[in-house]
Design a protein around this nucleic acid. Structure first.
Lengths: 230, 230
DNA sequence: GACTTTCTTAAGACTTTTCTTAACTCTTTT
DNA sequence: AAAAGAGTTAAGAAAAGTCTTAAGAAAGTC
């Protein structure tokens, strides 16, 4: 299964946003447009990102404010793309936590090359550092080694099962609808009327209960979806 | 004790070199001037660096040539500082492995801010681990001499094979995806659908099992990648 | 420039996972 | 109790991922 690179594009101008998204798509990554700071925050909370392109002049929450928020809380590289060409603004942004700053109008090829450059280096770093541990009850997942330990026993899951499980553990309180799951794990639209997920859930539960028959991990929320048992 | 940050400044113009060194010194880092590509190579071989500032127009070995050499062999971030302002040059440099590109005449504050920005993000990674011996089961690798001993026998591996093997041994529990391997060993983006890695793995395994037929070292993790057998 | 080694590409065989379907059961809601 | 939603199981088919081999391309060496 191919791992996607996700890039958030925060830019209120529709044309520029579309252009940036096209550049990203042409490089083989997956862009997500956001047209305001507040919208960007929602996306940033929803999932993890490999990079953020950020305009400084935004409606509502300013770009600077958002930049500060991101650099304090998230390890994601941020590239500012702004019409503000004053040195002072540029320097402030870089000092606040931006990883790059380019001014409009920009050269398409250069933006593309810079995105690649940052990702290249950042991914290398991510590989050796950034070990995340996911825990829930007696389930321990090391996202680096992809080893899942349940009740002190190492359990082997298929790639899909692993994806579902880590998704659930990443937001222990959230109820995931079937559409949610389909879009996250399969990266496809969900058209309902499909028990593929049921089958996978069934297999997941059976592997889990084999490891620990006394515990119950996944809860069905009737008419909605699934969540971890609280 | 705080460890010093060392930055190599490759620039043939004496005044500019001095200026850059001053900027670096004022930021609390330790600069090392080099006035030609060949001189830079000597410094690069002598010790490890946290960052390299590089002019493209150099006597003897060109900056482009040096950049290529560095990005192939070393994980250090490189910032190009050049009078060449053509987009094509800039893009080529970024694609070759440069982490940033600024044109002369440059703004002192901006250079300073950009250096800090790169160091901030990549500093931890650059704390080059000085591992001299890698061990796993009956495999012993001396990373200085690059000699690999398996089951008391010295085995010769090709450069790629050696790179893959040391990567695996560096994190014995980690599952390396193909993208991981490609980015570390080849220093290139992975677009999937490529069995080069499979072939190298096959060759690696066959060499290893020739040295010790009773042992099994590399495990395939389906749908994910490879790891060392636990 | 010829020789050697190493790397990459391609093709086919092979393995494992995933999907789909279907029949049947269980649970909750109305 | 009936209806709707959800769960389980199993089996075959399809898809995805991997392994191996061999030959040509590229790189490095003398």
């Amino acid at each position: 299964m191919e791992s996607e690179i996700n890039i958030l594009v925060v830019e209120d101008d529709n044309d520029i946003n579309t252009l940036l998204c096209d550049i990203i798509r042409n490089s083989g990554y997956r862009p997500q447009p956001a047209f305001s700071g507040t919208e960007a925050v929602l996306y940033l909370e929803k999932r993890s990102w490999d990079m953020v392109l950020l305009d400084l002049m935004l409606p509502g929450m300013s770009g600077e404010e958002l930049l500060e928020k991101i650099s304090e809380q998230l390890p994601v590289p941020v590239m500012i793309i702004s019409a503000k060409s004053e040195q002072q603004t540029k320097i402030e942004a870089l000092r606040t936590g931006a990883d790059d700053y380019i001014t409009k109008p920009f050269d398409i090829e250069e933006v593309s090359a810079r995105i690649d450059s940052h990702l290249r280096r950042y991914r290398r770093m991510n590989q050796t550092l950034h070990i995340k541990e996911l825990n829930y009850k007696d389930i321990r997942i090391n996202t680096e080694s992809q080893i899942v330990v349940v009740n002190e026993k190492e359990i082997l899951f298929t790639a899909r099962e692993y994806a579902i499980l880590t998704l659930l553990l990443s937001s222990p309180k959230k109820v995931f609808t079937k559409a949610n799951l389909f879009e996250s794990v399969w990266n496809e639209k969900y058209y309902g009327d499909d028990n593929t997920i049921s089958v996978h859930m069934s297999n997941l539960r059976s592997k889990l209960s084999k490891a620990n028959p006394h515990e119950d991990y996944i809860e069905t929320v009737w008419g909605v979806g699934y969540k971890l048992k609280t």
